[in-house]
Amino acid sequence: MKFLDEAKVYIRSGDGGNGCVAFRREKFIEFGGPSGGNGGRGGNVIIEVADGLNTLIDYRYQQHFKAQKGENGSGSDRHGANGKSIVLKVPLGTQIFDEDRETLIHDFTDVGEKFVLSEGGNGGFGNAHFKSSTNRAPRNANPGQPGEERWIWLRLKLIADAGLVGLPNAGKSTFLSKVSAAKPKIADYPFTTLHPQLGVVNADGREFVLADIPGLIEGAHEGTGLGDRFLGHVERCRVLLHLVDATCEHAGKAYKTVRKELDAYGGLLTDKIEIVALNKIDAVEPDELKKQKDRLKRAAKKTPLLMSGATGEGVKEALRALVDVIGEAPVSAKAKSTAEAEPWSA
């Protein structure tokens, strides 16, 4: 299934039905009086979180959604039927924005949560409603109120407990595939990962969800490379695991490049707890590894973990560091409902 995390959708709630002008006409009844029924209420547009969804791809192929119009009233005091509401299913973590893409309308955080985005128009009153002691035969009725229409943006922010960040080709996908049942594409070139990936990790008997996003490069906040829009998927994480490639030219500069992009993005990402790890230590000589470790330590102002996603060296320590921050209660309910995790073993 193709991953899509943003979609523009047109929605319209149903118009209310018109009221009816009618009079009772029966044999031997000289003054039957008004009998026009009221119009039915238009259908609402409802957004609901559905379990099992993890993409907005359905809204790539259908962008227009209209609720049913209320039925008109009719004679013999018959009221019109209400229009059927339309329900749009979205994955957990979806946000609704106005057409300007900045005004947040609603943020979904629970499975089964419902939000009425647009209410249907009220039905018009029939002439029977206007009968009074002074006006026994009203000949007026109300039209139904029109429904609401608008364009909205649906934006998905995956809900995970820990997020992987780093430059392209830093070994993030290899790490995810090693510690979870996820099977991301892995190759020896930058931007192998084009879409965010989720994996369920089982470490020391505790499960949590780990998110892998496409790599960041210098200028990502200005749209360079794949940009920084995927950083929204790690906004909800409690902790970030920052992987730095030990085979790069300068580990300290690589670390600072990513931190600069996190700071430019905002979203309090720079305030999150960060665990720094020097990856691919199996691919460098001991002398070079010591230099890179010292450079990274000076840049990050903390001692980095040493690990290799390919051989598994140091992976267990990195997972334990993540678990210590996440604690007993993961923020993501998907830890149980996504794919079943397999315990990691060295």
Rank of each mutant, 00 (worst) to 15 (best):
M1A: 12
E6Y: 12
V9L: 08
V9I: 13
Y10H: 14
G14L: 03
C20Q: 06
K27F: 11
I29D: 12
I29K: 11
G36Q: 03
G39Q: 05
G43F: 11
N44L: 07
I46W: 13
T55M: 10
T55D: 13
Y59N: 07
Y61E: 13
Y61S: 09
H64P: 00
Q68E: 15
Q68D: 12
K69D: 15
K69R: 15
G70V: 08
G75S: 11
S76L: 12
R78H: 05
H79N: 15
N82Q: 13
K84F: 12
K84C: 13
S85D: 15
K89G: 09
V90M: 09
V90R: 10
P91R: 09
P91N: 14
P91Q: 14
L92K: 08
L92Q: 10
G93R: 12
G93V: 07
T94Y: 11
T94G: 10
T94Q: 11
I96M: 04
F97C: 06
R101Y: 13
I105P: 00
D110A: 14
E113Y: 13
V116A: 13
E119V: 12
G121N: 02
F125Q: 11
K131G: 00
S132F: 01
S133E: 15
R139Y: 05
N140L: 11
N140C: 13
N142R: 07
Q145P: 00
Q145L: 15
P146Y: 06
R150A: 08
R150Q: 14
L158C: 08
A160M: 03
A162L: 04
G163Q: 01
G163P: 01
L164I: 02
L167Y: 05
P168D: 13
S173T: 05
K178N: 04
K183G: 01
I186H: 02
A187E: 08
P190M: 12
F191P: 06
T192M: 10
T193L: 09
L194H: 15
H195N: 15
Q197G: 00
A203I: 08
A203C: 14
D204P: 02
R206T: 11
R206S: 14
A211Q: 02
I213L: 10
P214W: 06
I217F: 03
E218H: 07
G219H: 05
G219Y: 01
G223D: 04
G225Q: 05
G227T: 02
R229G: 05
G232M: 09
E235W: 03
R236S: 14
L240Q: 00
H242G: 03
D245I: 08
A246I: 03
H250Q: 13
A251H: 01
A251P: 00
Y255S: 00
K256V: 05
T257S: 09
L262T: 06
A264R: 12
A264C: 06
L269D: 03
D271R: 14
I273F: 05
E274I: 06
A277N: 04
I281F: 02
D282V: 03
P286R: 07
D287T: 14
E288D: 14
E288N: 12
L289F: 04
L289W: 04
K290W: 05
A299G: 01
A299M: 01
K301H: 01
K302E: 11
L305H: 06
M307R: 06
M307P: 00
G309C: 04
G312F: 07
G314Y: 03
K316C: 08
L319S: 04
A321I: 04
A321E: 11
A321V: 03
G327Y: 07
G327H: 08
E328H: 11
K334H: 13
A339K: 15
A341R: 01
S345K: 15
